[in-house]
């Protein structure tokens, strides 16, 4: 699968600038556009195209659910190869599952469950075990040392 992106210099500048954050003000896109030396409409058009092309998976607030009283929890499963697609569908169908990745390991499915109520994490993991018939290993964070994803385009 070769999906090497065709990004021009402006796309790259937009992706890099907007990974750092958008100001909260009445015309935030205009402010960023000015920094980039373009107009607001161009920035919005490019942003829509980057979303449509799948270069960005999301553009919006990055929430810290713990600060709202909720919890994130990483979890891992060892899924037999022949069941993998079916199990992925079952797991992804849970709205509480925020991300899910296939990884090269005996534990080959790693997903993050997000719940506004901490008690709901455990019940959600149990529901996933029931739905899939597979054991789920909970890997809640005990300490966060650093979080800041920045991937220059």
């Amino acid at each position: 699968m070769d999906d090497t992106p065709v990004l021009d210099t402006l796309d790259r500048a937009i992706i890099n600038t907007l990974q750092h954050g958008l100001p909260i003000c009445p015309r935030p896109y205009r402010q960023v556009a000015e920094q980039l030396g373009i107009d607001e409409a161009t920035l919005l058009q490019r942003l829509v195209s980057l979303m449509d092309a799948g270069m960005l998976t999301r553009f919006g607030p990055l929430f810290q659910i713990e600060k709202m009283g909720g919890r994130f929890c990483l979890a891992a499963m060892s899924v037999p190869e022949e069941q993998f697609e079916d199990v992925a569908r079952l797991v992804n169908a849970f709205p509480e599952v925020a991300h899910n990745y296939q990884r090269q390991h005996q534990l080959n499915m790693w997903f993050v469950v997000a719940c506004p109520d901490p008690q709901a994490i455990q019940t959600t993991l149990e529901r996933i075990e029931t739905a899939t018939g597979l054991a789920v290993l909970a890997m809640p964070k005990e300490k966060e040392f650093f979080v800041n994803l920045y991937l220059p385009a």
Partner: peptide, 26 residues
């Protein structure tokens, strides 16, 4: 705007930002 700023100040919002697709960016 006031509410979004307050949520950002209190850390409920880390920032408003673009989330890249790792693979698509190479």
């Amino acid at each position: 705007i006031d509410r979004m700023m307050a949520m950002q100040q209190h850390g409920l919002i880390r920032r408003i930002a673009a989330v890249p697709n790792h693979y698509r960016l190479g």
